[in-house]
Amino acid sequence: MLRLRYFKVMVGGIILAALVVCGLAAPLLAPFDPQEQRLESRLEAPAWLGGRAQANLLGTDNLGRDILSRIVYGSRISLLVGATTVVLAGLVGCFLGAVAGYFGRRVDEVVGKITEIFLAFPFLLLAIALMAFLGQGVINIIIALMVSRWVQYCRVVRGEVLSLKERDFVTAAKALGARDYYVLLRHVMPNTLASVTVVATFGMAIVIISEASLSFLGLGVPAHIPTWGSMLSEGRSYMNRAPWLTIFPGIAIFVTVFGINLLGDGLRDVLDPKLRRQI
């Protein structure tokens, strides 16, 4: 039981760490400039499948760009968008959730209505609508995804705070004369951290997939920045002649999302106080 849990966290963590290294050290890891086009060697098969250009390990795309280099650089966008969105959405969601849960009544009602409004929209549809309105760009995609994602944190934190604020240690702190914000920050919020971490990890996986979806639809970052989603999109009309255009970015998305989900799953088990007590 225990081993499996830590095993998940470890594998997930390794994958995420590899991704971070990949993103940070992209210029060192990528064998070519991801933008450099060599039209004369377009649609080269991967080197180990007998492609002529031995240098292109994963082959070249429809404009002769090296696919491996584009995947390596593409990880930057996935990471950047994933991490930033999760942090920003987390801050907004946690704040509103904590306030709503702790103060209850009117505040809770207002925040509750707002979250319901946001929940009423299908998540990706809301993001698409926002992107259509804001236009392409990394910052815009972060805004669009953040606006669509904060609700999850808000709901979880509110629920946790509702039960935490009735606990004895909170009553004790209040009895000692602690002010609301102090109680909230010092005694209540730290206890929600476990749940928030789990929501954030799963959220990151969803955000990475969403960024890929938006880029696939042409609503993501500008065309010249390599992203996994836009690689899939550009390669799809070559599925028959050159499947490596879509297979490798697809694998990259799959492995990343799988790793992060594994991490989230493991963290949930490890951090679950009830499970912890049983050990």
């Binding site: 450099e36 086009q37 039209l39 429809n62 404009l63 065309a223 010249h224 550009e234």
Partner: peptide
Amino acid sequence: DREVCQAIAAQ
């Protein structure tokens, strides 16, 4: 046209 224009832009 997507490819043509991307190629022209890069050139």
